[in-house]
């Protein structure tokens, strides 16, 4: 167990290194000499030289990279070129809403996806099965912005049922809850398909196993067979496969945030790229990537808990 956890932790290091290298290169690629930019147009060559030394630009690139890594580890991601606020401050404000949105999506889409998938597997080959397959295929074929725009247009605007712009505060307040419904539904529609599909496949696999036949032979009721003997045993592959989809969800969250003006990291990243605010873009992409790596790591460690065979 400890060995498995350690090896997983160690294997995340080269990936983190690659991500940091990317962030560093992104800042290095800024057109123009940073020292000249900081110094302004009136700076004399001596002043620019002094700034260059102060910023460490006269040092070798490898050293500059190490300094960058050190700064990132201390949470210093530089300043936004547009608002001149600290990148870390902007990110920490946006981090909560993104996590909130993803959780609000998972809370309803995973149970529904697993339910639909189990139903399809239990009624394999019937109309129910085909309907679930159709839902999941159409779900993965819809661009998430189409779902989002439809929700905004009908539920938000024509029927005037729910707010569709921005965040209304914490989820436990009425306003906060009302504001999160549409983004969470849009993101979830996108996520149900893969979850249902994987649950169905995992359940079908389990249906063929001996212990299920034994349970049926003992006269266990079919509902109980499906829930206790099939679904419970299919949970490990389901968690594995769903865990692998976290990246998919993150990608969807970036688009959803933009449609619903949700103040999260994805919208921040897109806005920063569009306005060429490289320090902010670097920080936001770094945060998305590291968040993604850490989630994957957490999912991997969760398997070890769920399935002790893996850890050996």
């Amino acid at each position: 167990m400890t060995r498995y956890i350690l090896s997983r932790l160690l294997s995340a290091i080269p990936v983190l290194f690659g991500v940091l290298l990317f962030g560093f290169l992104l800042l290095k690629l800024t057109p123009g000499d940073p020292a000249t930019v900081v110094g302004g147009p009136m700076a004399t060559p001596e002043v620019i030289e002094a700034i260059r030394r102060e910023m460490g630009l006269d040092k070798p690139v490898v050293w500059q990279f190490l300094v960058y890594v050190g700064r990132v580890l201390q949470g210093d991601l530089g300043y936004s070129l547009i608002s001149n606020t600290r990148v870390l401050d902007e990110l920490s404000e946006a981090f909560g809403p993104t996590v909130e949105l993803m959780l609000a999506c998972l809370v309803w889409s995973i149970p529904l996806g697993i339910g639909l998938g189990t139903l399809a597997a239990a009624y394999r080959g019937t109309l129910v099965d085909r309907l679930v397959i159709a839902i999941s295929v159409v779900g993965v074929s819809m661009p998430i912005f189409f779902v989002g725009l439809l929700l905004v247009q009908y539920v938000g605007y024509y029927w005037n049922l729910l707010p569709f712009l921005g965040r209304g505060g914490p989820v436990w307040t009425g306003q906060g809850l009302a504001h999160i419904v549409l983004p969470a539904v849009a993101l979830g529609v996108f996520f149900i398909g893969p979850v249902a599909r994987m649950t169905r496949a995992a359940c079908l696999e389990t249906f063929g196993q001996d212990h299920v036949r034994t349970a049926r032979a003992k006269g266990v009721r079919e509902t109980r067979v499906v829930l206790r003997h099939v679904l419970a045993n299919a949970m490990i592959p389901i968690v594995t496969l769903v865990g692998l989809q976290i990246g998919f969800l993150l990608g969807g969250a970036i688009v959803t945030e933009t449609i619903f003006s949700w103040p999260g990291v994805g919208r921040l990243a897109v806005g920063a790229i569009l306005s060429s605010d490289l320090p902010l873009a670097q920080g936001a992409i770094l945060m998305l990537a590291i968040g993604f790596i850490l989630t994957n790591l957490a999912v991997d460690l969760l398997y070890a808990v769920l399935d002790p065979r893996l850890a050996r």
Binding site: P14, L250, G251, I254, V270, A289, F292
Partner: peptide
């Protein structure tokens, strides 16, 4: 494995940041 682990949209953001949209 390393590349596969990153969502395509995130790679898209990264390359749009480097090369310009």
């Amino acid at each position: 494995d390393i590349v596969l682990s990153f969502p395509s949209i995130l790679l898209g953001l990264a390359f749009a940041a480097v090369m310009g949209p």
